[in-house]
Every structure is written in structure tokens, then in C-alpha cells.
């Protein structure tokens, strides 16, 4: 700060605290609702302090014994599906992107620029604009209701490739020369030098892609019809499609909490890399 202005400082904190409250209020309310009985929630106004049903509601949600319209599948199972999908998407993307970025930066081969542009174009079009035909491909390959169908089409994007390409270009050229002097071939150089140096980028990308994978909605909505393959985000949506009044809001909200906790933890615990990765990827 340039000069001392105690009043302005106080005002600063006031604005920020207000911001935090507004941002956090939906979360707080969700938590409160997830600790109430469903009767307590429907009587307006609902209590604004946590109730005593925490264990009951979460157990009911996790095991799918809550009853109600769509709450038959255990959320525990859905979370496993979400976790596996998010891991396949994030790790798969990182793996194929590392390899292709390595090829593009460190080799000269025919049609290199053609492939470069081919990958580059995919940056532009999110899966949402080509859902119909993509769905058909997945259906024709018999990948509906499989992890492959849930994940591989979402791996087909270039963000990670570009992040790694950018990063590789900043790796000093002399390191490659030194490695060649030391007798390291391409695979060895990749494994011993490039990969360890990319650790931070990989961590950052992992956070971003894990959240991307966990939070997918439209795609799983299309390719999963079997309740056993619902990710948790879809599960919530199925629970609330019953209608306003007959909904078991307490179970829905417990499920919502469960759906938010893993990605939120990843973001907060890996905040340092996440923030760096986010700002670097896009700039």
C-alpha cells in the first residue's frame, strides 16, 4: 500500500468479508440443510443453524437408504464412479499430452506442423457443440455405460498439450545439449530430465483436469443410462427431478456436500499449483 489510510483499510476488510459471506452462504445453507430432517426444511423458514441429523442423513445418502423419488442408488457408489472418471480424465490427458508435446517440441518429422495445427484446432470446440455425433461414435463403439465412454471423449482436447508445449519451450536448450553430451537418448532425456522438471506443471494440470472431470455433466448425462455408472453430479440431478415438495432436500443437500468436498479439497490443498497452473495455462 502506498499510504496509510486506516479507514480505507477497514473498509477493504469489510468489503472482502462481505464478499466471502455472499460466496459462502450457499455452502453454509447446504450444510445446514444436510443436517436437518426433511420436515424441518419444508417448514418455512427453515432453521439457519445446523441440526442433529448429520450422521443419519449422510449415512442414508451414502448407502442409498434414504428413500424418496430418485435416491435409490448409493451415493457412495456414485462417488467411486466420479473419482475413477476424474482420475482417468486427468491422468489420461496429462499422459497423452506430455507425449505429444514432447514429440512436437523435440523432434522434426514430416507433417509436424500439420499435427500441431490439428491438435491446436481442438482447443476451440468444447464437447458441448458436437454432442450428437460424438454420442453416436461412442454408441457405435459399444462404449455407453462404460468408463471408456465416460472419459476418453473428454480426453480429446488440447489444453494440456499446449501447456506442456509452452513449458518445454522454456526449458533451456543447453540442458538438452548437456544430456546429449552425457549420452542420453530421447526416452532417457524425457524420463530423467523433462519429467522431473515438469512436476509443477503436472500438478497444476492435475488439479484443473480433476475438477473438470469430476464436474462433467452433459456428457455423462448422455452416455450413462445404468444407475451404477452415474457420477455423483448426475445423481443429484436425478434426485431433484421428482418435483419441488416431495423432494428429500436433506438427502439431496448431503449429496451435494459430498459432491463438492473432493474437488474443493483438491483445490484448497493444492492451491499453490492450482493458481499458478490456471493463470499460466490461459496466458
Amino acid at each position: 500500500m502506498v499510504e496509510r489510510r486506516p479507514l480505507l483499510t477497514a473498509f477493504t476488510h469489510l468489503v472482502l468479508i462481505l464478499g466471502v459471506i455472499v460466496v459462502a452462504f450457499p455452502l453454509y445453507l447446504t450444510f445446514v440443510a444436510s443436517t436437518q430432517t426433511s420436515q424441518a426444511i419444508v417448514q418455512t423458514p427453515m432453521p439457519l443453524l445446523p441440526g442433529d441429523q448429520l450422521v443419519e442423513n449422510y449415512t442414508a445418502a451414502l448407502t442409498g437408504t434414504g428413500g424418496g423419488a430418485g435416491a435409490k442408488t448409493p451415493v457412495g457408489r456414485m462417488m467411486v464412479v466420479s473419482l475413477i472418471s476424474a482420475l482417468i480424465i486427468s491422468l489420461g490427458k496429462i499422459a497423452i499430452s506430455l507425449l505429444s508435446a514432447f514429440a512436437i517440441v523435440y523432434f522434426r518429422f514430416p507433417y509436424r506442423m500439420f499435427f500441431f495445427w490439428m491438435i491446436f484446432i481442438t482447443l476451440m470446440l468444447p464437447v458441448e457443440v458436437r454432442i450428437g455425433p460424438t454420442y453416436k461414435v461412442v454408441a457405435d463403439l459399444g462404449m455407453l455405460d462404460t468408463y471408456a465412454g465416460l472419459t476418453i471423449p473428454l480426453i480429446a482436447s488440447a489444453t494440456a498439450t499446449f501447456l506442456f508445449r509452452q513449458f518445454f519451450l522454456t526449458v533451456p536448450e543447453e540442458l538438452l545439449e548437456a544430456a546429449r553430451m552425457d549420452g542420453a537418448g530421447p526416452i532417457r532425456f524425457f524420463k530423467d530430465v523433462l519429467l522431473p522438471l515438469s512436476a509443477t506443471s503436472i500438478a497444476a494440470l492435475f488439479v484443473i483436469q480433476f475438477i473438470y472431470g469430476w464436474n462433467q455433466y452433459l456428457w455423462p448425462l448422455l452416455v450413462t443410462t445404468n444407475e451404477n455408472m452415474y457420477p455423483v453430479v448426475i445423481g443429484i440431478k436425478r434426485m431433484i427431478s421428482g418435483g419441488d415438495s416431495e423432494m428429500q432436500w436433506n438427502i439431496v443437500m448431503a449429496t451435494a456436500m459430498l459432491a463438492m468436498v473432493p474437488p474443493a479439497l483438491v483445490v484448497i490443498l493444492m492451491q499453490k499449483w492450482f493458481v499458478k497452473g490456471l493463470v499460466d495455462t490461459e496466458k
Partner: peptide, 16 residues
């Protein structure tokens, strides 16, 4: 380079 039986010291050292 590795077959030439030489060693090189780089300007920026190029340490891993």
C-alpha cells in the same frame, strides 16, 4: 556427441 569422447562446459552451465 556422446560418442566423440569429449566433454563440454556450457556458458550457462546447463546443470540439471
Amino acid at each position: 556427441p556422446s560418442e566423440r569422447d569429449i566433454a563440454m562446459v556450457f556458458q550457462n552451465y546447463a546443470l540439471y
